[in-house]
Amino acid sequence: MNLRPLRASLAALGILLLCACSPDKPIRIGFIGGLSDRVSDTGEAGRNGLILAVEQRNQVGGVRGRTLEILVQDDGQDPEKARRAIQTLVDARVDAVVGPFSSVVAAVAVPVISQAGILMLSPTVTSTEFAGKEDYLIRLNRTTRDNARDYAQRLYQRGQHRVAAAYDMRNGPYSVSWLNEFRSAYTAHGGQLVAAVPFISQADTGYGDIARQMLQSQPDGLLFIGGAIDVARLAQQAEKLAPNLPKSAAERASTELLLELGGRAMEGLLIAQAYNRDDRSDRYRRFHDAYVARFAQEPGFSAVLTYDGATVLWQAMERQEAGESLRDAVLRHGPYEGLQQSIQFDRYGDTSHKVYFTEVRGGHFVQVP
């Protein structure tokens, strides 16, 4: 008797049974952020926030019985590297992308991801260049216009009527947008932007020269627009040259690295936070304690916003209907309950977001009215 046909049939049946019994393939979440550049503190905190959200969701069965997995790509805050990174995620056919965390990378990534029809959810991109657009980018943060206007009002009310600014052109879409919005709002209040000094964030940046250029205009306040490393170095140089001059920094630098690197030069610095560091609610404390236990460090603003973004994704995936794109599901099924505030998107995938102004006092961010 020839057993080959029977064996072949049994083998085929075994494969079918294995496929029938195996769980659905995992949901693949792409991550793109700066993990090796000068703002890696923001990218790493965002990655950690996503890891925690995925691990917690998988512990309760994933989404519709499917587990979640992360594919991580480092953009290095470099356009060419970012282009390759986002294409890698597209080629891997991820179900959604979390990131990027800088506007300069978003400028490269959004056209690619929109052409592929894959949802991209950015926790931190704020440039007005990406607001009010019908594309596949969903933004968790407010815009540079919102932030810069709040700063303009606060600085003028604090008696700073002549401000000098320095801004990082390495993340030009963000910094230039922020500066222009600030200039417009500040002038409307009666203030004068007496200097705007551009620089490119890199290892050999001459921070002392930048500080001296800012001070030549005899301002009554200094404003730094850049990442934590740059703001810390600029503040240190300014402290040497004009120790009593008030300093402020755009919200992007509001990480623990700023305090670590800046030291005593940070005292009195005004900076906005994208979340309430003093929140004692059960919801936030559970996240905070789980994050510290998992990563042995405090969560930064990008970790909080990324965790909220993951919450949006899981809930939208649960409610997504047959034939409905994930983008449409996100826009249709809000509002979503974030760690500290409700999240509701408009037709363009934009949302409002509350901020909390702080001053550095005694090496800590202390919330101010």
Score class of each variant (00 low, 15 high):
Ala310Phe: 09
Pro299Trp: 07
His333Glu: 01
Asn48Ile: 00
Leu140Pro: 01
Gly43Ala: 07
Asp75Cys: 08
Val163Ile: 14
Gln192Pro: 11
Gly43Thr: 00
Leu331Glu: 04
His161Pro: 07
Gly49Ile: 08
Lys81Gly: 09
Pro219Phe: 15
Phe287Ile: 03
Ala235Asn: 07
Phe365Met: 12
Pro219Ser: 06
Leu269Gln: 05
Ala290Leu: 14
Leu18Asp: 00
Ala265His: 09
Gly221Leu: 05
Phe101Trp: 02
Asp41His: 07
Leu331Pro: 00
Asp278His: 08
Ala265Leu: 12
Asn276Trp: 03
Ile15Gln: 09
Glu321Ser: 14
Gln73Val: 15
Phe224Tyr: 08
Gln320Leu: 07
Ala195Leu: 08
Leu223Gly: 13
Ile15Cys: 12
Arg280Tyr: 09
Ala238His: 04
Ile32Ala: 01
Leu16Phe: 05
Asp74Tyr: 08
Ile118Tyr: 07
Leu270Thr: 15
Ala253Lys: 00
Ser201Leu: 15
Phe365Asn: 02
Ala148Ile: 05
Trp178Asp: 13
Glu251Tyr: 12
Ser177His: 01
His288Tyr: 15
Asn244Gln: 12
Arg361Val: 03
Val368Trp: 02
Ile29Thr: 05
Ser36Gln: 01
Arg154Gly: 06
Val330Ile: 11
Gln153Leu: 04
Ala329Met: 05
Leu6Gly: 06
Val368Ser: 07
Lys247Ile: 13
Ala303Ile: 14
Ala109Ile: 08
Glu337Thr: 13
Leu10Gly: 03
Ser40Ile: 00
Thr124Pro: 04
Leu13Asn: 10
Ala116Asp: 13
Gly221Val: 11
Arg264Ser: 15
Ala329Trp: 10
Arg145Ile: 04
Pro369His: 03
Pro23Glu: 07
Thr126His: 05
Ser325Tyr: 09
Pro243Leu: 08
Arg283Gly: 07
Val312Glu: 01
Val105Gly: 02
Pro246Asn: 08
Ala12Asp: 02
Ala96Arg: 04
Tyr156Asp: 12
Leu326Ala: 01
Gly334Ala: 03
Phe182Pro: 01
Thr67His: 13
Ala232His: 06
Tyr291Ala: 07
Arg4Phe: 11
Ala166Trp: 14
Ser114Glu: 15
Phe287Arg: 14
Ala116His: 10
Ser302Glu: 05
Gln297Thr: 14
Ile29Asn: 00
Ala296Thr: 12
Gln218Val: 13
Leu140His: 00
Asp78Phe: 07
Arg142Leu: 11
Pro100Cys: 06
Leu18Ser: 05
Ile271His: 06
Ala253Glu: 00
Glu55Tyr: 01
Gly172Tyr: 05
Ala106Asn: 00
Tyr348Ala: 15
Gly65Met: 12
Ala196Met: 11
